[in-house]
Design a binder for these strands. Structure first.
Lengths: 146, 146
DNA sequence: ATTTATGCAAATCGTTTGCAAACCT
DNA sequence: AGGTTTGCAAACGATTTGCATAAAT
């Protein structure tokens, strides 16, 4: 799961951005590579006690700017972070539980995804907007909260 | 624009929730009814100096729980608020500028919307998730920031 | 040797809350 | 009167930042 290949690719992204791949950043990537859903900062530092909170915040900014990590906004008060799709090669969206706030990854049919891409591009163009990406979240109740 | 019909409908929603429709709440609805995009709290209190910040926060919670207002999460540090779709009768999504943070409303083709509803319902069911609604945002650069 | 990263503790800032006065009904 | 709402100022808490030390190159 957390392969040396992943570390190589993250290292390359950081290098391109003029950043070092330090051991704290490596450990952070290990934590993110070990889950299938985005984590909050308390969850990250809880999974690896050696990760200091302030450095984790700072390193997530660095990793995000380098394109290795993406920030996920759910409905509760925490930002969540996960490895960028460029690294996981799995384009996905999120199931967000409105009750407990948990987030899980989900994929939608490829045909729907293609159609979204096409039609949203048109909608954006018509509005004079330069589209970068779309965000599609399913909000409802997870199994435990239903 | 801000019709008495709107106030009647909001009043009804609040009544159903056991809440009063006070003049501060009415003024707040006037502000929200006067725009075509979601507003931050500074924007709201800036547009009507009579609205105190703390009461505005509290009243938005009340209006949201009653179903008259919905909270919009963009990419910057502020929550934004707009009248609920139930009141505007315009199902829409958001164009979010990644550079300046502004948000504008946008509608997508009805056929795409129908297909999304259908297919997301299936995806959610397959994941054991009880779907309430979806959130679709287009993130990119607005005309001024492109 | 010089630059960059780290981690503690303090600061920041959007949002929430306590409380006394004003408002409804 | 009896309960609710209001608005000021203070509290809260997630995130950011200053600074002295440690690590990386």
């Amino acid at each position: 799961m957390v392969s040396s290949e992943l570390h190589e690719r993250v290292g390359e992204l950081l290098r391109l951005d003029g950043q070092r791949y330090t051991s704290a950043r490596r450990q952070l990537v290990d934590v993110l590579g070990g889950t299938t859903f985005p984590l909050t900062i308390p969850e990250i530092t809880g999974r690896d006690q050696a990760l200091a909170q302030s450095s984790t915040y700072r390193n997530l900014v660095v990793l995000e700017r380098a394109g290795a990590v993406q920030k996920v906004v759910a409905t509760d008060e925490w930002y969540r972070y996960e490895l960028a799709e460029e690294l996981t090669d799995r384009h996905h969206h999120h199931l967000i539980c409105a009750a407990c706030g948990t987030v899980q990854d989900v994929e939608v049919p490829a045909a729907l995804e293609r159609r979204l891409d096409e039609q949203l591009a048109e909608v954006a163009t018509a509005a004079g907007f330069q589209l970068e990406h779309h965000r599609l979240d399913l909000v409802g109740r997870c199994t435990s909260c239903a």
